[in-house]
């Protein structure tokens, strides 16, 4: 979060110079989300394995993340937002990462379980 001070100096302009998304972009993103939904259902029924490790869960999560990113960037206009907004979004994801990873350092390395 310490990078804010640079952010605002370099961008004296205000966010309200607003980018109005085109209807075509929205339709395109909607289509991509529908395809993603179909893809994730289809992938769930395939047994995807590499070297004995099932890749179904990572694939489902990657598709979900791509979909979520599309929503964040286009529906929520983060693509055209200030750096501060982008940093805010990233910090949210980063902190969720802290919670999940550091918790899993315990659950995945327990010798006694």
């Amino acid at each position: 979060m310490t990078a804010h001070q640079q952010t605002e100096h370099q961008q004296p302009h205000h966010e309200s110079v607003h980018h109005i998304g085109s209807l075509f972009t929205y339709a395109l993103i909607f289509g991509a989300l529908l395809i993603g939904t179909g893809l994730t259902v289809w992938a769930a029924f395939q047994n995807i394995e590499v070297g004995g490790i099932s890749l179904n869960a990572p694939i489902a999560l990657i598709i979900a993340t791509v979909k979520a990113t599309l929503v964040v960037l286009y529906f929520m206009h983060v693509k055209d937002s200030s750096r501060l907004t982008k940093i805010t979004v990233i910090s949210g994801v980063f902190w969720l990462g802290i919670l999940l990873t550091l918790t899993m350092t315990d659950f995945l390395t327990r010798a006694w379980h």
């Binding site: 550091l102 350092t105 390395t109 327990r110 010798a111």
Partner: peptide, 11 residues
């Protein structure tokens, strides 16, 4: 509390 000792080391 019974957490993994490896995790305990990191923390």
């Amino acid at each position: 509390a019974g957490i993994s000792m490896y995790a305990a080391l990191i923390f």
